[in-house]
Nucleic acid binder design. Structure first.
Length: 471
DNA sequence: AACCCGGAAGACAC
DNA sequence: CGTGTCTTCCGGGT
Protein backbone atom coordinates (compact mmCIF):
# COMPACT_ATOMS: atom_id res chain seq x y z
CA UNK A 1 0.00 0.00 0.00
CA UNK A 2 2.58 2.29 -0.65
CA UNK A 3 1.25 2.72 -3.91
CA UNK A 4 0.50 6.15 -4.37
CA UNK A 5 -0.20 7.76 -7.44
CA UNK A 6 -2.14 10.60 -6.40
CA UNK A 7 -3.95 12.18 -9.08
CA UNK A 8 -3.81 15.72 -8.54
CA UNK A 9 -6.31 17.86 -9.94
CA UNK A 10 -5.26 18.76 -13.27
CA UNK A 11 -4.61 22.26 -13.91
CA UNK A 12 -1.95 24.65 -14.69
CA UNK A 13 0.69 23.23 -12.58
CA UNK A 14 -1.04 20.30 -11.33
CA UNK A 15 0.47 17.44 -12.93
CA UNK A 16 0.95 14.45 -10.91
CA UNK A 17 3.33 14.68 -8.23
CA UNK A 18 5.24 11.65 -7.72
CA UNK A 19 5.19 10.36 -4.32
CA UNK A 20 6.80 10.10 -2.08
CA UNK A 21 7.36 13.68 -1.67
CA UNK A 22 6.63 15.94 1.01
CA UNK A 23 3.03 15.27 1.32
CA UNK A 24 2.55 18.52 2.82
CA UNK A 25 3.59 19.82 -0.39
CA UNK A 26 0.71 18.12 -1.77
CA UNK A 27 -1.46 19.68 0.72
CA UNK A 28 0.03 22.96 0.34
CA UNK A 29 0.89 22.97 -3.18
CA UNK A 30 -2.55 22.46 -4.29
CA UNK A 31 -4.48 24.42 -1.92
CA UNK A 32 -7.42 26.39 -2.56
CA UNK A 33 -7.73 27.87 -5.88
CA UNK A 34 -7.76 31.32 -4.62
CA UNK A 35 -5.08 30.94 -2.16
CA UNK A 36 -2.34 33.07 -3.40
CA UNK A 37 1.09 32.24 -2.43
CA UNK A 38 2.24 34.32 0.34
CA UNK A 39 3.23 37.51 -1.22
CA UNK A 40 6.63 38.40 -0.45
CA UNK A 41 8.13 36.36 2.15
CA UNK A 42 7.84 38.37 5.18
CA UNK A 43 11.15 37.28 6.04
CA UNK A 44 11.58 40.31 7.99
CA UNK A 45 8.58 42.37 8.26
CA UNK A 46 10.33 45.09 9.99
CA UNK A 47 12.98 45.26 7.46
CA UNK A 48 10.42 45.55 4.80
CA UNK A 49 8.48 48.25 6.37
CA UNK A 50 8.49 51.37 4.35
CA UNK A 51 11.57 53.35 4.88
CA UNK A 52 11.18 55.95 7.46
CA UNK A 53 8.47 54.17 9.26
CA UNK A 54 9.43 53.81 12.87
CA UNK A 55 9.51 50.25 13.98
CA UNK A 56 7.42 51.08 16.96
CA UNK A 57 3.86 51.46 15.74
CA UNK A 58 2.82 53.41 18.72
CA UNK A 59 5.07 56.15 17.68
CA UNK A 60 3.57 56.52 14.30
CA UNK A 61 1.95 59.69 13.20
CA UNK A 62 -1.19 59.72 11.18
CA UNK A 63 0.86 59.87 8.10
CA UNK A 64 2.85 56.91 9.21
CA UNK A 65 -0.31 55.01 9.77
CA UNK A 66 -1.39 55.71 6.25
CA UNK A 67 1.97 54.66 4.94
CA UNK A 68 1.74 51.52 6.94
CA UNK A 69 -1.71 50.71 5.71
CA UNK A 70 -0.73 51.27 2.15
CA UNK A 71 2.17 49.04 2.68
CA UNK A 72 -0.04 46.39 4.13
CA UNK A 73 -2.33 46.57 1.19
CA UNK A 74 0.49 45.84 -1.11
CA UNK A 75 2.35 43.47 1.01
CA UNK A 76 -0.54 41.32 1.96
CA UNK A 77 -2.75 41.78 -0.96
CA UNK A 78 -5.37 43.28 1.14
CA UNK A 79 -8.29 45.17 -0.16
CA UNK A 80 -7.81 48.86 -0.11
CA UNK A 81 -8.49 50.40 3.18
CA UNK A 82 -10.72 53.30 3.66
CA UNK A 83 -8.18 55.69 5.00
CA UNK A 84 -10.87 57.84 6.41
CA UNK A 85 -11.46 55.19 8.93
CA UNK A 86 -7.90 55.32 9.99
CA UNK A 87 -7.47 58.90 10.82
CA UNK A 88 -5.40 58.23 13.83
CA UNK A 89 -1.90 57.93 14.99
CA UNK A 90 -0.08 54.77 15.67
CA UNK A 91 -0.95 54.67 19.27
CA UNK A 92 -4.61 54.80 18.51
CA UNK A 93 -4.21 52.27 15.78
CA UNK A 94 -2.60 49.90 18.18
CA UNK A 95 -5.46 50.26 20.52
CA UNK A 96 -7.90 49.00 18.01
CA UNK A 97 -9.02 45.52 18.63
CA UNK A 98 -9.13 42.94 16.02
CA UNK A 99 -12.80 43.46 15.82
CA UNK A 100 -12.35 47.14 15.41
CA UNK A 101 -9.93 46.60 12.65
CA UNK A 102 -12.17 44.06 11.12
CA UNK A 103 -14.96 46.53 10.96
CA UNK A 104 -12.80 49.06 9.33
CA UNK A 105 -11.39 46.68 6.86
CA UNK A 106 -13.42 43.57 6.49
CA UNK A 107 -11.39 40.60 5.76
CA UNK A 108 -8.16 42.15 6.74
CA UNK A 109 -8.70 43.04 10.30
CA UNK A 110 -6.88 40.15 11.69
CA UNK A 111 -4.01 40.60 9.39
CA UNK A 112 -3.61 44.15 10.43
CA UNK A 113 -4.03 43.27 14.00
CA UNK A 114 -1.48 40.58 13.82
CA UNK A 115 1.02 42.66 12.02
CA UNK A 116 0.60 45.38 14.53
CA UNK A 117 0.98 42.98 17.33
CA UNK A 118 4.14 41.72 15.90
CA UNK A 119 5.53 45.13 15.41
CA UNK A 120 4.58 46.23 18.83
CA UNK A 121 5.99 43.22 20.36
CA UNK A 122 9.13 43.44 18.39
CA UNK A 123 9.51 46.95 19.47
CA UNK A 124 8.96 45.93 23.00
CA UNK A 125 11.48 43.23 22.79
CA UNK A 126 14.05 45.18 21.01
CA UNK A 127 13.67 48.45 22.61
CA UNK A 128 12.19 47.22 25.77
CA UNK A 129 9.26 49.37 25.29
CA UNK A 130 6.75 48.79 27.93
CA UNK A 131 4.50 46.04 27.03
CA UNK A 132 1.93 46.89 24.62
CA UNK A 133 -1.60 47.62 25.38
CA UNK A 134 -2.39 45.81 22.31
CA UNK A 135 -1.03 42.67 23.54
CA UNK A 136 -2.31 42.37 26.96
CA UNK A 137 -1.80 38.72 27.06
CA UNK A 138 1.66 39.02 25.92
CA UNK A 139 4.14 38.19 28.44
CA UNK A 140 7.20 39.99 27.64
CA UNK A 141 8.75 36.81 26.77
CA UNK A 142 12.14 37.04 25.38
CA UNK A 143 12.60 35.53 22.14
CA UNK A 144 13.27 32.89 21.79
CA UNK A 145 11.02 32.28 24.61
CA UNK A 146 12.52 31.06 27.68
CA UNK A 147 10.78 27.99 28.44
CA UNK A 148 11.44 28.33 32.00
CA UNK A 149 8.39 29.98 32.94
CA UNK A 150 6.22 27.97 30.80
CA UNK A 151 3.72 25.88 32.34
CA UNK A 152 2.42 23.06 30.47
CA UNK A 153 -0.25 24.81 28.77
CA UNK A 154 0.97 28.03 27.68
CA UNK A 155 -1.27 30.64 26.53
CA UNK A 156 0.08 30.87 23.15
CA UNK A 157 -1.46 34.02 22.28
CA UNK A 158 1.36 36.12 21.50
CA UNK A 159 4.18 33.83 21.35
CA UNK A 160 2.63 31.33 19.27
CA UNK A 161 1.04 33.80 17.15
CA UNK A 162 4.08 35.57 16.54
CA UNK A 163 6.16 32.72 15.77
CA UNK A 164 3.74 30.88 13.88
CA UNK A 165 3.31 33.66 11.61
CA UNK A 166 6.80 33.51 10.85
CA UNK A 167 6.26 30.03 10.00
CA UNK A 168 4.44 31.03 7.01
CA UNK A 169 7.03 33.39 6.02
CA UNK A 170 9.39 30.68 6.53
CA UNK A 171 7.51 28.58 4.21
CA UNK A 172 8.49 30.97 1.62
CA UNK A 173 12.02 30.81 2.58
CA UNK A 174 14.10 27.96 1.71
CA UNK A 175 15.94 27.60 4.83
CA UNK A 176 13.34 28.21 7.28
CA UNK A 177 12.69 25.61 9.75
CA UNK A 178 9.20 25.38 9.01
CA UNK A 179 6.68 23.93 7.17
CA UNK A 180 6.42 23.74 3.70
CA UNK A 181 2.93 24.28 3.72
CA UNK A 182 0.60 26.61 4.05
CA UNK A 183 1.82 28.92 6.18
CA UNK A 184 0.47 27.88 9.23
CA UNK A 185 -0.86 30.55 11.19
CA UNK A 186 0.36 30.72 14.53
CA UNK A 187 -1.30 28.83 17.03
CA UNK A 188 -2.56 31.74 18.75
CA UNK A 189 -3.19 33.77 15.85
CA UNK A 190 -5.52 35.06 18.21
CA UNK A 191 -8.86 34.32 17.49
CA UNK A 192 -10.94 35.61 20.10
CA UNK A 193 -10.10 32.77 22.27
CA UNK A 194 -11.96 30.15 23.87
CA UNK A 195 -14.07 28.82 21.21
CA UNK A 196 -13.75 26.53 18.45
CA UNK A 197 -12.44 28.51 15.73
CA UNK A 198 -13.54 26.85 12.77
CA UNK A 199 -15.62 28.54 10.46
CA UNK A 200 -15.00 29.09 6.98
CA UNK A 201 -13.79 32.38 6.02
CA UNK A 202 -16.44 34.41 4.54
CA UNK A 203 -14.88 34.29 1.23
CA UNK A 204 -13.87 30.77 1.39
CA UNK A 205 -13.85 29.29 -1.94
CA UNK A 206 -16.40 26.88 -2.91
CA UNK A 207 -14.74 23.89 -2.29
CA UNK A 208 -13.21 21.18 -3.92
CA UNK A 209 -14.61 17.99 -3.19
CA UNK A 210 -11.42 16.36 -3.17
CA UNK A 211 -10.58 14.94 0.01
CA UNK A 212 -14.00 14.59 0.98
CA UNK A 213 -13.55 11.03 0.71
CA UNK A 214 -11.00 11.17 3.28
CA UNK A 215 -13.14 13.20 5.37
CA UNK A 216 -16.17 11.38 5.84
CA UNK A 217 -15.44 8.02 5.33
CA UNK A 218 -12.75 6.32 6.80
CA UNK A 219 -13.21 3.28 4.96
CA UNK A 220 -12.47 3.86 1.49
CA UNK A 221 -9.96 1.85 -0.14
CA UNK A 222 -7.10 3.97 0.18
CA UNK A 223 -6.22 4.64 -3.17
CA UNK A 224 -8.84 6.04 -5.18
CA UNK A 225 -9.90 9.22 -3.76
CA UNK A 226 -6.64 10.02 -2.39
CA UNK A 227 -5.62 10.98 -5.67
CA UNK A 228 -7.73 13.93 -5.71
CA UNK A 229 -6.50 15.02 -2.55
CA UNK A 230 -5.12 18.05 -3.85
CA UNK A 231 -7.31 20.78 -2.93
CA UNK A 232 -7.71 20.50 0.63
CA UNK A 233 -11.01 19.88 1.66
CA UNK A 234 -13.80 21.42 3.06
CA UNK A 235 -15.31 18.31 4.07
CA UNK A 236 -18.87 17.69 3.58
CA UNK A 237 -19.65 18.27 7.07
CA UNK A 238 -19.15 21.84 6.61
CA UNK A 239 -18.87 23.52 9.78
CA UNK A 240 -20.41 21.03 11.87
CA UNK A 241 -18.94 22.48 14.92
CA UNK A 242 -20.69 24.80 17.09
CA UNK A 243 -20.28 28.12 15.70
CA UNK A 244 -18.52 30.68 17.61
CA UNK A 245 -19.49 34.13 18.25
CA UNK A 246 -20.23 35.97 15.14
CA UNK A 247 -17.71 38.61 15.67
CA UNK A 248 -14.97 36.19 15.54
CA UNK A 249 -15.99 35.19 12.18
CA UNK A 250 -13.60 35.11 9.45
CA UNK A 251 -11.04 36.30 11.69
CA UNK A 252 -8.17 34.23 10.92
CA UNK A 253 -8.09 33.46 7.38
CA UNK A 254 -5.11 35.34 6.43
CA UNK A 255 -2.77 35.21 9.23
CA UNK A 256 -0.33 33.58 7.14
CA UNK A 257 0.44 36.75 5.53
CA UNK A 258 1.61 38.23 8.64
CA UNK A 259 4.42 36.01 9.22
CA UNK A 260 7.42 37.12 10.71
CA UNK A 261 10.81 35.88 10.60
CA UNK A 262 11.41 36.06 14.18
CA UNK A 263 10.11 32.70 14.25
CA UNK A 264 13.40 31.74 12.89
CA UNK A 265 15.65 34.05 14.58
CA UNK A 266 18.73 34.16 12.64
CA UNK A 267 19.56 30.96 11.14
CA UNK A 268 18.06 28.21 12.93
CA UNK A 269 19.02 25.11 11.23
CA UNK A 270 16.38 23.73 9.14
CA UNK A 271 14.45 21.03 10.69
CA UNK A 272 13.12 19.63 7.54
CA UNK A 273 10.08 18.30 9.06
CA UNK A 274 7.85 20.04 6.69
CA UNK A 275 4.82 18.75 8.23
CA UNK A 276 6.12 15.31 8.30
CA UNK A 277 5.93 15.19 12.00
CA UNK A 278 2.51 14.59 13.23
CA UNK A 279 2.37 17.50 15.56
CA UNK A 280 3.60 19.74 12.86
CA UNK A 281 1.06 18.42 10.49
CA UNK A 282 -1.70 18.99 12.96
CA UNK A 283 -0.51 22.44 13.70
CA UNK A 284 -0.55 23.24 10.10
CA UNK A 285 -4.03 22.06 9.60
CA UNK A 286 -5.17 23.80 12.69
CA UNK A 287 -3.58 26.99 11.70
CA UNK A 288 -4.39 26.92 8.13
CA UNK A 289 -5.10 30.49 7.27
CA UNK A 290 -8.01 29.61 5.16
CA UNK A 291 -9.45 27.25 7.61
CA UNK A 292 -9.68 24.56 5.11
CA UNK A 293 -9.35 21.79 7.54
CA UNK A 294 -11.78 22.75 10.16
CA UNK A 295 -13.93 19.92 9.21
CA UNK A 296 -11.16 17.64 10.16
CA UNK A 297 -9.60 19.34 13.06
CA UNK A 298 -10.21 22.59 14.79
CA UNK A 299 -9.14 24.56 17.75
CA UNK A 300 -11.41 24.51 20.65
CA UNK A 301 -9.33 26.96 22.45
CA UNK A 302 -6.39 28.10 20.66
CA UNK A 303 -4.98 29.89 23.58
CA UNK A 304 -4.67 26.78 25.56
CA UNK A 305 -3.85 24.61 22.65
CA UNK A 306 -6.95 22.55 22.93
CA UNK A 307 -8.19 21.16 19.72
CA UNK A 308 -10.70 18.67 18.57
CA UNK A 309 -10.42 16.18 15.87
CA UNK A 310 -13.67 16.71 14.18
CA UNK A 311 -13.33 13.97 11.71
CA UNK A 312 -11.02 11.33 13.05
CA UNK A 313 -11.22 9.10 10.08
CA UNK A 314 -10.78 11.89 7.66
CA UNK A 315 -7.92 13.38 9.51
CA UNK A 316 -6.23 10.06 9.74
CA UNK A 317 -6.63 9.69 6.10
CA UNK A 318 -5.03 13.00 5.45
CA UNK A 319 -2.22 12.04 7.70
CA UNK A 320 -1.89 8.83 5.87
CA UNK A 321 -1.67 10.64 2.63
CA UNK A 322 0.81 12.94 4.11
CA UNK A 323 2.98 10.11 5.20
CA UNK A 324 2.19 7.92 2.36
CA UNK A 325 0.70 5.32 4.58
CA UNK A 326 -2.60 4.97 3.00
CA UNK A 327 -3.87 2.48 5.40
CA UNK A 328 -3.65 4.96 8.16
CA UNK A 329 -6.64 5.15 10.36
CA UNK A 330 -7.56 6.93 13.49
CA UNK A 331 -6.52 4.09 15.64
CA UNK A 332 -3.01 4.21 14.35
CA UNK A 333 -2.80 7.89 14.21
CA UNK A 334 -4.05 8.20 17.72
CA UNK A 335 -1.33 5.85 18.80
CA UNK A 336 1.14 8.28 17.43
CA UNK A 337 -0.62 11.01 19.28
CA UNK A 338 -0.38 9.08 22.45
CA UNK A 339 3.32 8.85 22.09
CA UNK A 340 3.29 12.56 22.37
CA UNK A 341 1.95 12.28 25.85
CA UNK A 342 5.23 11.13 27.11
CA UNK A 343 7.12 13.98 25.77
CA UNK A 344 4.54 16.39 26.85
CA UNK A 345 3.71 17.63 23.50
CA UNK A 346 0.17 16.58 23.83
CA UNK A 347 -2.24 15.48 26.35
CA UNK A 348 -5.71 14.15 26.14
CA UNK A 349 -8.55 16.28 27.19
CA UNK A 350 -10.31 14.06 29.54
CA UNK A 351 -13.83 13.28 28.89
CA UNK A 352 -13.98 14.82 25.53
CA UNK A 353 -13.72 12.61 22.62
CA UNK A 354 -11.15 13.41 20.09
CA UNK A 355 -10.01 16.35 22.05
CA UNK A 356 -6.37 16.88 22.73
CA UNK A 357 -4.30 19.67 23.94
CA UNK A 358 -0.96 20.83 22.80
CA UNK A 359 1.23 21.41 25.75
CA UNK A 360 3.74 23.37 23.86
CA UNK A 361 3.38 26.06 21.41
CA UNK A 362 4.78 25.85 17.97
CA UNK A 363 7.82 27.75 18.87
CA UNK A 364 8.71 25.39 21.54
CA UNK A 365 8.11 22.50 19.34
CA UNK A 366 10.30 23.96 16.74
CA UNK A 367 12.96 24.48 19.21
CA UNK A 368 12.66 21.01 20.34
CA UNK A 369 13.08 19.95 16.88
CA UNK A 370 16.18 21.87 16.57
CA UNK A 371 17.51 20.56 19.71
CA UNK A 372 16.92 17.19 18.40
CA UNK A 373 18.94 17.99 15.44
CA UNK A 374 21.69 19.32 17.46
CA UNK A 375 21.74 16.28 19.50
CA UNK A 376 21.94 14.18 16.52
CA UNK A 377 24.91 16.06 15.44
CA UNK A 378 26.66 15.86 18.68
CA UNK A 379 25.23 12.58 19.28
CA UNK A 380 27.58 10.01 20.63
CA UNK A 381 29.25 11.99 23.24
CA UNK A 382 26.69 14.18 24.53
CA UNK A 383 25.15 13.23 27.72
CA UNK A 384 26.71 15.44 30.16
CA UNK A 385 24.43 18.31 30.68
CA UNK A 386 21.34 16.40 30.77
CA UNK A 387 22.74 13.77 32.88
CA UNK A 388 23.47 16.21 35.50
CA UNK A 389 20.30 17.96 35.26
CA UNK A 390 18.29 14.96 35.64
CA UNK A 391 18.91 14.10 39.16
CA UNK A 392 18.27 17.50 40.42
CA UNK A 393 15.40 18.31 38.33
CA UNK A 394 13.49 15.26 38.61
CA UNK A 395 11.63 16.11 41.68
CA UNK A 396 10.94 19.64 41.17
CA UNK A 397 9.89 19.11 37.73
CA UNK A 398 7.48 16.54 38.55
CA UNK A 399 5.82 18.83 40.81
CA UNK A 400 5.89 22.11 39.25
CA UNK A 401 6.47 22.23 35.64
CA UNK A 402 5.57 19.18 33.95
CA UNK A 403 6.35 20.74 30.78
CA UNK A 404 8.95 23.12 31.18
CA UNK A 405 11.44 25.09 29.86
CA UNK A 406 14.27 23.04 29.08
CA UNK A 407 12.10 21.58 26.63
CA UNK A 408 12.01 18.10 26.12
CA UNK A 409 15.08 17.74 24.28
CA UNK A 410 14.05 14.75 22.53
CA UNK A 411 10.91 13.70 20.95
CA UNK A 412 12.04 10.33 20.30
CA UNK A 413 9.76 7.75 21.50
CA UNK A 414 12.57 5.43 21.89
CA UNK A 415 14.16 8.02 23.93
CA UNK A 416 11.26 8.33 26.11
CA UNK A 417 11.22 4.71 26.45
CA UNK A 418 14.76 4.01 27.14
CA UNK A 419 13.94 0.57 28.09
CA UNK A 420 12.64 -0.08 24.73
CA UNK A 421 14.92 -2.05 22.61
CA UNK A 422 17.53 -1.42 25.09
CA UNK A 423 18.31 -2.71 28.39
CA UNK A 424 15.45 -4.17 30.18
CA UNK A 425 14.36 -2.03 32.98
CA UNK A 426 15.10 -4.64 35.42
CA UNK A 427 18.49 -5.40 34.20
CA UNK A 428 20.15 -2.24 35.04
CA UNK A 429 19.84 0.61 37.38
CA UNK A 430 17.65 3.32 36.32
CA UNK A 431 20.47 5.67 36.16
CA UNK A 432 22.17 3.78 33.49
CA UNK A 433 19.19 2.83 31.58
CA UNK A 434 18.62 6.34 30.75
CA UNK A 435 22.06 7.33 30.11
CA UNK A 436 21.39 8.40 26.66
CA UNK A 437 18.02 9.78 26.95
CA UNK A 438 17.63 10.92 30.39
CA UNK A 439 15.87 14.08 29.83
CA UNK A 440 13.50 12.50 27.56
CA UNK A 441 12.71 9.83 29.90
CA UNK A 442 12.42 12.36 32.51
CA UNK A 443 10.05 14.59 30.85
CA UNK A 444 8.42 11.67 29.49
CA UNK A 445 7.46 9.64 32.37
CA UNK A 446 8.17 11.73 35.27
CA UNK A 447 6.71 14.80 34.00
CA UNK A 448 3.71 13.42 32.61
CA UNK A 449 0.81 14.97 34.19
CA UNK A 450 -0.73 11.81 35.07
CA UNK A 451 -0.27 12.27 38.64
CA UNK A 452 0.18 15.88 39.12
CA UNK A 453 -2.31 18.47 38.56
CA UNK A 454 -0.35 21.28 39.89
CA UNK A 455 0.88 23.32 37.17
CA UNK A 456 -1.91 24.39 35.18
CA UNK A 457 -4.12 26.00 37.60
CA UNK A 458 -2.92 29.44 38.13
CA UNK A 459 -1.14 30.28 35.05
CA UNK A 460 -3.42 28.77 32.65
CA UNK A 461 -7.04 28.60 32.78
CA UNK A 462 -6.80 25.02 32.32
CA UNK A 463 -9.54 23.04 33.44
CA UNK A 464 -8.59 20.10 31.53
CA UNK A 465 -5.58 19.64 33.46
CA UNK A 466 -7.28 19.39 36.67
CA UNK A 467 -9.77 17.08 35.27
CA UNK A 468 -7.17 14.72 34.35
CA UNK A 469 -5.22 15.00 37.43
CA UNK A 470 -8.09 14.42 39.62
CA UNK A 471 -8.19 10.90 38.73
C1' DA B 1 -19.00 -0.06 19.39
C1' DA B 2 -16.06 3.44 19.59
C1' DC B 3 -12.67 5.37 22.19
C1' DC B 4 -8.63 5.40 24.73
C1' DC B 5 -4.32 3.53 26.58
C1' DG B 6 0.21 1.94 26.28
C1' DG B 7 3.45 -2.18 25.27
C1' DA B 8 6.02 -4.40 21.67
C1' DA B 9 8.18 -4.76 17.41
C1' DG B 10 9.20 -3.16 13.04
C1' DA B 11 9.56 0.26 9.10
C1' DC B 12 11.71 3.96 7.27
C1' DA B 13 14.07 8.28 6.60
C1' DC B 14 17.92 10.75 7.85
C1' DC C 1 24.67 2.06 11.62
C1' DG C 2 22.16 4.56 15.20
C1' DT C 3 18.46 7.48 16.09
C1' DG C 4 14.07 9.57 15.74
C1' DT C 5 9.39 9.13 14.52
C1' DC C 6 6.20 6.95 13.64
C1' DT C 7 3.25 2.54 11.96
C1' DT C 8 1.14 -1.60 12.90
C1' DC C 9 -0.80 -4.85 16.13
C1' DC C 10 -2.78 -5.89 20.04
C1' DG C 11 -4.82 -6.77 24.68
C1' DG C 12 -7.19 -4.38 28.01
C1' DG C 13 -10.08 -0.71 30.07
C1' DT C 14 -14.02 2.70 29.89
Amino acid sequence: MKVVSLQLPSGPSMERLPLPFSPTELLWRYPLPWAPPPPSPLGDTKAQLPAGLPPEPRLWTREDVVVFLKWCEREFDLPNFDMDLFQMNGKALCLLTKTDLGERCPGAGDVLHNVLQMLVRDAALLGRVPSSPVTPTARAAPYPPSPHSHPPTPTWSVDGFHHFHSAAAAAAQPNSVTLSPAPSVDSSGSPQRGEIVNYAPAYAPPVPTAVQAASSGSNHSDSDEDGQFAPPPRSPKENSLPSPAPQTHAVQHSHYRTQHREFFPNDIPESNTNGRLLWDFLQQLLNDPTQRYTNYIAWKNRDTGVFKIVDPAGLAKLWGIQKNHLSMNYDKMSRALRYYYRVNILRKVQGERHCYQFLRNPTELKNIKNISLLRQQMSPTRVAPQTVVKSEMKEERCEEEPVDEDMPTDLSMAASEPWRKRARPDTMPVSTQHDKHRISALIGDNMIPKREPEYSAENYALNLRSEKCEQ
